[in-house]
Design a protein around this nucleic acid. Structure first.
Lengths: 189, 189
DNA sequence: TCTGTCTAGTCATAGAGTTGAGTATCGGGA
DNA sequence: TCCCGATACTCAACTCTATGACTAGACAGA
C-alpha cells in the first residue's frame, strides 16, 4: 500500500494535477515506484476522500480545466506514520531474469537480444538521471549539496536509481557476452 | 504474468513439491521474483490444469504425502515462447525509497534506523549469495565455469542478485551517513 | 483539411499478489 | 506430557496493480 505514500511524497514538492503528477512520476519517482496515469487518478481520488490531499479546480482557457492537489496536514501526518513503520525488504522483479534463469534450456538468441536492448535502455536512463541530478543540485558539488541542500530526498532516490541502472547495464553486457561466447564455442564443436 | 514462468524456470532443475519449491524460491529465485507459498500452490495447480507441468503423487511414511511436479514438453515450449517475447524494463519498487524521498520533510530518525537494518540485511544476503555461487560453480573458477558449466542460468541470476545487494548496502550506508550528518549539523545550529 | 499529438481526465474490469485461518502428522526437547 | 516446529497442503477474502476503451478541445504540420 505504498502507491499512496509515493503520491504523497511526490506532492511534497508542490501542487500537481493528476496529469502533471504522471509526468513527474515518470522522471524521478519512477526510480522506485512505477505507476500508470490511471492509477494516479484513482489514488488521488481516494486520498482526497480520506482528506490526505486537497484538490482545487483551476479553470484554463485554451486547454481542459484541471485539479491541482496538495498534501494536507493529515497527509503529512500519514507520511510521518508511514516513515516510522517497517517496510519489507525490496527485491528485483524482472521478467528478463526469469529468462536468464532458464537461459541454457531455451533458445538464447532472443535473450541475448533483449539483454542488449536493456543495456541500451539503461544507458539512456543513466544519462537522463545524470542530468536530473545536475539540475537538482545546481552548481554546487555533490557532497556540499548533500550537507547543505534544502531538499535532498529526490536527489538521494535518484542516486539509487543511477546505481541500479549502472549495475543493470554492466550485468546485461556481461551476461550477453557470456551467452554469446557459449554459442560460439558450441558452434565450433 | 511471469510468476508462472518463474515457476517453470525453477522446475527446470528437477522435480519439486509445492513445499520444496517454496524453499527453492526463497534461495535462488528470490533474486528476481518473490512469492509466498500460497501463490506457488495456486500457480502449480493452474499450470497442471493447462498441462505445462505434470504432477505425480509420492506416498511417504513418516510425513504427509506430497506431489512432485516437473515441466512438460508443453511447459518447455511455453518457456521458449516467453523467452522470445519482449519484457518490460524492470524497476525498483521499494517502500524505503518512498521514505527517503520524503526524508527531509518527515522525521529522519526511523528512516535512518531502517537504512541501517537494510544494510545489515543486505550484508547477510551477500554472504548467502556468495556461498550459493560457490556451491553452484564447484571448484572451478568463475570465468571457467561460465564458459563450460552445464547449467549457468541460476548462477547468472545470482550474480545479479549479488550486485544488487552490494549496491543496495552501499547506498543504505551512504544515505544513513548523510542523514546522520545533517541531523548533527542541524542540532549544532 | 486531415491526422496526429498534447492536455486532462473517467469508467470498468481483469489479473496479480497478500493475508489469515485451518488441517493433519511426526519428532524433538522442556 | 505438552507444546513447538517442520512437512505438506487447501480455502476464502481482500487489496493492489495493470489494461483497455472512451471523451473532448487545442494546436501543429503535411
Amino acid at each position: 500500500m505504498a502507491l499512496r505514500h509515493a503520491v504523497l511524497a511526490a506532492l511534497l514538492d508542490g501542487e500537481y494535477s493528476g496529469y502533471q503528477l504522471a509526468k513527474a512520476f515518470d522522471i524521478g519517482v519512477a526510480n522506485f515506484w512505477h505507476a500508470v496515469p490511471q492509477q494516479l487518478y484513482t489514488e488521488l481520488a481516494k486520498l482526497e476522500k480520506e482528506g490526505l490531499v486537497a484538490g482545487r479546480q483551476v479553470i484554463q482557457e485554451s486547454r481542459p480545466n484541471k485539479r491541482l492537489f496538495r498534501v494536507t496536514d493529515a497527509g503529512q501526518a500519514e507520511l510521518e506514520r508511514f516513515a516510522a513503520d517497517v517496510s519489507k525488504p525490496s527485491f528485483i522483479r524482472d521478467d528478463l531474469l526469469v529468462k536468464v534463469q532458464a537461459a541454457d534450456r531455451v533458445g538464447t538468441g532472443p535473450v541475448i537480444e533483449q539483454l542488449d536492448e536493456r543495456a541500451a535502455a539503461a544507458d539512456a536512463k543513466i544519462e537522463l538521471l545524470g542530468k536530473l541530478l545536475l539540475r537538482l543540485r545546481g552548481d554546487v558539488d555533490e557532497d556540499e549539496f548533500l550537507r547543505t541542500g534544502e531538499r535532498i530526498g529526490p536527489y538521494l532516490t535518484c542516486l539509487r536509481g543511477l546505481s541500479f541502472e549502472r549495475e543493470h547495464r554492466e550485468w546485461c553486457l556481461r551476461i550477453a557476452a557470456v551467452l554469446r561466447e557459449r554459442r560460439t564455442e558450441h558452434a565450433e564443436r
